[in-house]
Nucleic acid binder design. Structure first.
Length: 804
DNA sequence: AGCACGCCGACT
DNA sequence: GTCGGCGTGCTC
């Protein structure tokens, strides 16, 4: 009886978003398992694609109408996707309106993605002159988009005449790292003889032989090169002459540059103890309970995580800890590794493709029991989860902003149900969604109201910048903040300064005619970058020189407006010439490891002031920081988004917590143009509860989440009319299936109507229960696929993080 | 996605 | 009359 494999092919379209059946060749019958990658023929051109075995049917009754093709090869000796993750990929695809293949690929390290190559080779019939012209001495030619259209035309014609063969190659990008090991091969005497036969001038060779005679044990080539300063060519000569052998040995790349000091569990206060025992009880009883761990900054949430993880490990189970990418600092990773040592695997975007793949393989082989990582680490192939931690659960970076548009918190909850284990959602400022669920007892609320060691909350001052403007000249620094900075300098203490960059940047404007330099591809002003002395577009990367003459009126009064970190830094050095400042923003942290280096410098007191964007608000803990200044608290408040207040409150609370974490009292200055706004006033007292109540009322009144569900649809096209028309059509279609209770906002042009030469239109649907909505949305995607050749793209985002 | 098939304009 | 342009539909 023939066995049939259902395969999800690597062709991300709506029409192919279903398993395809393939015959399993006899040789593979015992070998093939669901979750393995295979190469299958697909389409009538002899094309080959990668696919994932979805299911194997042993009792298959083959449909006589269709003749099945057979699986070509298996790419893995064992499944790369286990049963749980296969199931998860199906759920993901359904809830995010993404293709199953896209979901599978998202769950795996990039190294396992397919690499496709197309080759052509001549047949015997191909005339010799054409053959030499196209192929030269080569047997085959790579057919990719580097070939000129002229050559492609010729190849197409030759293929029609069957004078050339086309074949496809599918391979994995994965690369197992190897290290070259060198081992002396011949006996001492042979080396001696070789030594005497060398010419006098062969100094390096002599040196090598001397070393080999003294050290018969294998050594890595890199180390050998360092030790006796020989180049690899000398070693190759040595290999050719039979003095040594070289062999590639598989090694893991080590992403941890530094060793960590082993730490012991800390003593818990009563609130922490209560939280730890509640979570441990759920682990022990295999109860998929969700806890909302609410604790002010400095209340010892991390210690609660670590002790619940330790409990899971002691029962032979594993743990997953998610942290926002931005706070995946050595400080946090160091604390986890300090407690659990080699059992820890770390997954974050700072790793190279290869390092990521190695960490993933360690997890898959069961060599790591604890995984710490950012969003995509939620797919770590752990098989015995005992607890999942989502730290800073309110962070919007847990939501992926392209397909599949999943929220790591939701995936964590799914996996917890699968593994029958608890989830801990931790935050000082929980998302309204989570806090509301705790209110309804869907989640169990755990409180850590006190800071450990009874530290006081910092003293927060709100500075009204409109008032400030009236009395002083325009500046980024109010008199009181500047005074406080000076005091810190005198006392040798450190300060953090945060510039809220969201919706704010420095641009160039002509004072005579008001002209603002715009991106030619996007509807947005270009941002000034002093380091490269250029104007850049933050959306498409367009770059051009800084104008000195207004391109519109040719006037010379062209000036810079707005505030970037670079400009603030400049002002700071003028106001406080003695202060040593470290600036941290996307520009200074782009290079790998720069982030860590700057933080270490600050931690080592190499600077007095750390100036940065949002990235300095999270998870940093410097004992000598006694002052935190927020230069512009309210830039996010101006955005037309239902989460603007929530974001502002979270950010201000977060950054205030950075002040005075040790014995020294902390002071915080929040500069704002909206001193009376409730998000700012309540952040001053860190009053989350009152903020929650107040914000929930507003959400209720506006029919916003968490009272309503929301779906955001975006249409984009190079032709503005196409995008708009598509949206209108979609609205009309949706209205036929939606109940009268559903609220449709839009369609409206995107907040930035044009990005990268594409026009955006969007639509938000708010609803409580719409049984027909899902099917209608899938239908819309299917139709859009047909039009996609015209350039139209439709994106669907369920539970969007913003309506913008 | 990428390939073949198929139907219309400008060449030998 | 054919070559090759791209619009359309299908891929186990």
């Amino acid at each position: 009886m023939t066995q049939i494999a259902e395969v999800i092919v690597d062709v991300p379209t709506m029409q192919t978003n279903t398993p395809y059946s393939y015959e399993i060749p006899a040789a593979l019958v015992d070998q093939l398992q669901p979750g393995m990658r295979v190469v299958v023929p697909f389409g009538n051109g002899g094309r080959k694609v990668q696919g994932f075995v979805w299911q194997i049917k042993t009792d298959a009754t083959p449909d006589p109408e269709v003749t099945l093709k057979a699986i070509e090869t298996v790419m893995d000796p064992a499944p790369v996707v286990n049963a749980e993750l296969m199931q998860l990929s199906g759920w993901l695809a359904n809830t995010t309106y993404a293709f199953t293949i896209t979901c599978l690929q998202t769950m795996l390290p990039n190294a396992l993605k397919a690499k496709y190559q197309k080759w052509v080779s001549p047949t015997d019939q191909l005339p010799a002159d054409i053959r030499t012209r196209l192929f030269g001495e080569q047997k085959k030619l790579l057919w990719d988009d580097t070939l000129s259209t002229e050559i492609v035309k010729q190849l197409l014609a030759l293929n029609r005449q069957h004078l050339i063969n086309v074949h496809y190659e599918v391979s994995s990008k994965s690369q197992v790292k190897t290290m070259m090991m060198v081992k002396p091969i011949t006996s001492h005497e042979n080396l001696m003889t070789a030594r005497t036969q060398l010419r006098k001038t062969a100094v390096k060779q002599a040196e090598l032989i001397d070393y080999l005679m003294d050290h018969p044990e294998p050594i890595s080539q890199i180390e050998l090169e360092r030790k006796i300063n020989v180049s690899s060519s000398i070693l190759k000569t040595g290999e050719a002459n039979g003095w040594l052998t070289r062999k590639a040995v598989e090694v893991y790349r080590d992403p941890f540059q530094t060793a960590v000091v082993k730490t012991q569990p800390l003593h818990l206060n009563p609130d922490q103890t209560k939280a730890v025992s509640a979570i441990c009880a759920a682990t022990d009883q295999e109860k998929p309970e969700t806890f909302l761990l609410e604790g002010v900054t400095g209340s010892g949430k991390t210690e609660v995580y670590l002790q619940t993880i330790a409990n899971a490990l002691s029962h032979g189970k594993q743990a997953l800890m998610l942290v926002p990418e931005i706070s995946l600092t050595p400080q946090i990773v160091g604390r986890v590794r300090g407690r659990f040592g080699q059992k820890v695997a770390v997954l974050h975007s700072g790793l190279s493709g290869g390092e990521r793949f190695d960490e993933w393989r360690r997890i898959q082989r069961g060599e790591a029991q604890v995984v710490v990582g950012a969003r995509s680490a939620v797919f770590a192939p752990l098989t015995h989860l005992g607890v999942i931690v989502v730290d800073e659960e309110h962070e919007s970076s847990y939501k992926q902003d392209d397909n599949p548009r999943y929220h790591a918190r939701d995936v964590a909850l799914w996996r917890a149900r699968y593994h029958h284990c608890p989830v801990v959602l931790g935050s000082a400022t929980p998302s309204l969604e989570s806090r509301a669920r705790a209110e309804k007892n869907v989640y169990t609320r755990l409180l850590l109201p006190n800071r450990v060691n009874h530290q006081q909350l910092p003293d927060v001052t709100i500075v009204d910048m409109t008032e400030e403007l009236r009395h002083h000249k325009e500046s980024n620094f109010s008199g009181s903040l500047l005074q406080a900075l000076k005091e810190r300098l005198d006392r040798g203490e450190q300060s953090l300064l945060m510039l809220n960059r969201r919706g704010y940047s420095s641009f160039v404007m002509c004072r005579d005619c008001g002209f603002v330099l715009q991106c030619p591809n996007c509807d947005i002003s270009l941002t000034l970058h002093m380091d490269t002395k250029t104007m850049k577009c933050h959306y498409c990367g367009h770059e051009e020189p800084i104008p000195h003459v207004c391109p519109s009126c040719h006037g010379h009064h062209i000036r810079y407006y707005g505030t970037g970190t670079q400009k603030v830094e400049q002002e700071l050095t003028e106001l406080l010439p003695d202060a040593r400042v470290i600036r941290m923003d996307v520009d200074t942290t782009r290079r790998k490891g720069a982030h860590e280096r700057l933080l270490k410098q600050f931690g080592d007191h190499k600077a007095d002031i750390l100036l940065g964007t949002q990235m300095i608000a999270k998870g940093l803990d410097f004992p000598d920081v006694t002052l935190v200044g927020v230069l512009n608290a309210d830039t996010a408040l101006g955005l037309p988004d239902f989460r603007a207040s929530e974001r502002t409150f979270q950010l201000l609370t977060q950054v205030s917590g950075r002040a005075g974490r040790a014995e020294k009292a902390g002071q915080v200055f929040i500069q704002t143009y909206n001193p009376d706004h409730y998000a700012i006033q309540l952040a001053k007292t860190q009053n989350y509860e009152q903020f929650f109540v107040r914000e929930m009322q507003l959400r209720h009144r506006g029919n916003y989440p968490p009272y309503y569900f929301a779906v955001k649809l975006t249409a984009s096209d190079v032709d503005e009319r196409q995008a708009a028309e598509a949206m209108v059509k979609i609205v009309r279609q949706l209205k036929t299936v939606l109940s009268p209770q559903a609220i449709v906002l839009g369609p409206t042009p995107g907040a930035i109507a044009r990005v990268n030469k594409r026009y955006y239109y969007q639509l938000v649907i708010k609803y409580k229960r719409e049984p027909k909505l899902d099917a209608a949305l899938f239908n819309i995607l299917g139709q859009a696929q047909k039009q996609s050749r015209g350039g139209l793209q439709i994106a669907i985002d369920r539970n969007p993080m913003s309506f913008m």
